[in-house]
Simulated scan of single mutants.
Amino acid sequence: MSLHASTEVSTRSTSAAALAPYGWDAGWHDAFRPYAGRGLVPGRVIRVDRGQCDVVTPDGTVRADTAFVVPRDPMKVICTGDWAALDPEGASPRYVREYLPRRTAFVRSGSSKRSDGQVLAANIDRAVVAVSLAAELDLARIERFTALAWESGAEPVVVLTKADLVPDAATLGHLVSDVERTAPGVTVLAASSADGTGLERLAALVGSGTTVLLGQSGAGKSTLANTLIGEEAMEVQAVRDMDGKGRHTTTTRNLLTLPGGGALIDTPGLRGVGLWDAGTGVERVFAEIEEYARQCRFQDCAHDSEPGCAVLAALDTGELPVRRLESYRKLQRENQRIVAKTDARLRQEIRREWRIKGAEGRAAADAKRGRIR
């Protein structure tokens, strides 16, 4: 074996041993070859904060500067979960030079009015959506989260937290069933950090790969993370007496390893999760509506008033709940608007549809008034 080959095998084995708990595999090793040839070191970003990030490397956890990876496109900003190529040990300051192409990414629309997306976590295998049972279930919000999860390329999972607050098993079963109908094809489980309900099953689900934990403030994410990790890694605040909700504690996205295997990214509570080019995700969440739509008489059926519309027929028979169709339409419109911000041709098509619908509306109003032209 040549000296170069021997060195590569040694480097690979060192990186694999140190980084395997964080998800390093043969695929990442191969993707890193060009960077290794430049003398750079691999590592996974476990936290980003104000132009710097904490990176786990074969040498341990280091603080690195991200000045070299500050693009104009917010979608390309380095984030928790990225695999980075950074300066070797001894460099001062130590910079992240580049990051490897992402396999998956959970993206929502930015909070600004611009057409920007925000990457919340990169290279994730599953997205766990935490929903508190201390308050009434918001099924529309669950649909929104799971649409983004499907679109990310990760496997969505819905965890109904604080299950100990539900008075009986039958009621808990009904709540789980409601969410299963709302998120077809998604694993749904009830869990409680207080009495241990569902935790063994959840630990098995997240015991490999990388999981991102998402949800509103007070959904019990940090408590759940601490339970899975087995220590008080995340700060937890007291539950409010008035409504049983926890208060927001996590302020940054942190990647931590789990004792049973796998890695977990805990995130701050999300007040809003706007869709970001999530057309495929919306179709997955509303799979039954998409199936009805394939049976419509017209391929371009808008499911409004067209004859032979299978979606409206399912609505009339009660097979399809009105709330479900309204939520589908809302998310479709929202996603279309965000895509149109970056697609000029789609913008023109939407404006044309608005003009046609406007003319049809005016014609209908005139007909009612007896002013048919």
Rank of each mutant, 00 (worst) to 15 (best):
V62A: 12
V176G: 03
A31D: 12
E8G: 05
T80R: 07
V9H: 07
S109R: 15
G110P: 01
A20Q: 12
D65N: 09
T249S: 15
E326D: 13
S217C: 14
R373D: 09
K162L: 02
R103K: 05
V45F: 05
V282P: 00
S111V: 07
P88D: 10
D304I: 08
D316V: 04
V9M: 12
V45C: 11
A365D: 05
D168V: 05
A190I: 01
T161Q: 00
M75N: 09
E349G: 03
R271P: 10
G60E: 11
V128C: 01
H4F: 11
S13E: 15
G218N: 10
H174Y: 04
V282C: 03
P321H: 02
A314V: 06
K221Y: 09
S115E: 06
E136M: 01
A36D: 13
D25S: 10
R333Y: 08
D138P: 03
D300T: 07
A154W: 02
L255Y: 08
P21G: 04
P259K: 08
D168W: 03
A64S: 14
V129C: 00
R97V: 11
G318K: 01
G272Q: 15
G244F: 12
P88Q: 09
D30K: 15
T267P: 04
V212H: 12
L315T: 01
V128W: 00
V9T: 13
D277F: 06
L258H: 14
L255R: 04
R247V: 14
E232Y: 05
H248P: 08
D125F: 02
V176P: 04
E232V: 14
P268N: 09
E235Q: 11
P88Y: 12
L148H: 01
R181E: 10
R94Q: 06
K330T: 15
E290C: 08
A147C: 02
